[in-house]
C-alpha cells in the first residue's frame, strides 16, 4: 500500500470552473448545472509561450496553477502530467498535413505534439528544473497518474503535482476515440505525515479491471465522458471531507483500491 497526503486541489470541467467555485457543488451542498467551462489564460506563461500553447496546454496549466496556489515555491514540485489523448488538435492537424502530396509539417506543431508538451510549458512557466513525468493510460490515465505521483511522493519524499487533463480530439480522430468534453483535475501530493494536509490517501493496486462506474446523479455521469473526469469520485470525497473507499481504473489489467481519509 502507498500512503500520501493531499494538499492543493483543482478541477476544470463542465459546470466546474475551478475548485474554489466548485467545492460546494462537489460536496453536494449546491446543485450542479451543466455549463461550458471557460478556462482562464495561462497567466504564468510569458506572452511568447502563451501564443504557442494550445487549448490542451491551457487547460492543464489552469488546473496546475490553481492546485499550486498555496505552494510557497511552485518550482520545487516534481510533476506528473497524465493525459490519454495528449494534444489531439495538434496530432490531428499533423495527421492531416501528412496526407499532402508535398509534406511540410509545422516545426512548432511537431514539437508541441510530444505528449510531455504541457509538462514542458509548465516547467518553463514556473522555472522548475525538477523531474517531470508524462503518462498516457487511455481511460485509466487519471488512476495511472495518481499511482505514479503517490509512489514518487512516498519514495522520493518531495511534493508532487499531479495534473490530469484531456480534451476532445478533432474529427476524424474523435470518431475513433470520443471524448465528450474538456476536463482537468490536479492535486498536490506529499508524504503521508505532512502537516496541513486536506486528506490522506491509501492506494493498493488490485488485479482485474475496476467496476464500471454507475452514475447516481448528473454530475457523476460526467465520469465516463473524459479520462480525467475519473477523478470525480475522489474530488467529491475531498470536497465533502468524507472517508471513502473507491475502486479507480489505473491500468488495462489492474485498478486501485483508493481510500481517502479526511484530515
Amino acid at each position: 500500500m502507498i500512503r500520501c497526503s493531499v494538499h492543493g486541489v483543482s478541477v476544470w470541467g463542465p459546470g466546474l470552473p475551478g475548485w474554489a467555485a466548485s467545492e460546494a457543488v462537489l460536496a453536494g451542498s449546491s446543485p450542479w448545472e451543466a455549463a461550458e467551462c471557460a478556462v482562464p489564460a495561462p497567466a504564468l506563461l510569458s506572452p511568447t509561450e502563451r501564443r504557442r500553447a494550445g487549448a490542451t496546454t491551457r487547460l492543464a496549466l489552469a488546473a496546475a496553477a490553481e492546485a499550486t496556489e498555496a505552494e510557497p515555491d511552485r518550482a520545487a514540485l516534481e510533476t506528473v502530467f497524465s493525459s490519454a489523448n495528449g494534444d489531439g488538435a495538434v496530432v490531428g492537424a499533423l495527421m492531416e498535413a501528412l496526407q499532402a502530396e508535398e509534406v511540410a509539417l509545422s516545426p512548432t506543431q511537431f514539437h508541441n505534439s510530444v505528449h510531455n508538451a504541457a509538462a514542458g510549458y509548465w516547467h518553463i512557466a514556473v522555472g522548475s528544473t525538477h523531474p517531470s513525468l508524462s503518462l498516457g493510460g487511455h481511460d485509466a490515465a487519471f488512476g495511472a497518474g495518481l499511482l505514479a505521483a503517490a509512489a514518487s511522493a512516498s519514495v522520493r519524499g518531495g511534493p508532487v503535482l499531479l495534473c490530469a487533463y484531456d480534451v476532445p480530439m478533432p474529427a476524424p480522430l474523435h470518431g475513433a476515440r470520443p471524448t465528450a468534453f474538456p476536463f482537468a483535475a490536479a492535486l498536490v501530493l506529499r508524504q503521508a505525515d505532512s502537516p496541513g494536509a486536506r486528506a490522506v490517501l491509501e492506494l493498493t493496486p488490485r488485479p482485474g479491471p475496476a467496476p464500471e462506474a454507475s452514475p447516481d446523479d448528473a454530475l457523476m455521469a460526467l465520469e465516463t465522458g473524459n479520462p480525467a473526469a475519473r477523478a470525480l469520485p475522489l474530488l467529491r470525497a475531498l470536497a465533502a471531507r468524507r472517508d471513502s473507499v473507491q475502486r479507480l481504473a489505473s491500468g488495462p489489467e489492474s485498478h486501485l483500491e483508493l481510500r481517502c481519509i479526511p484530515c
Binding site: L135, G136, P252, E253, S254
Partner: peptide
C-alpha cells in the same frame, strides 16, 4: 500485459 499474462500495475511514459 496481455501477451505475458501479467495483472500488476501498468504505466506508459511518454516524455
Amino acid at each position: 500485459q496481455s501477451r505475458l499474462g501479467l495483472t500488476g500495475p501498468a504505466l506508459v511514459i511518454s516524455t
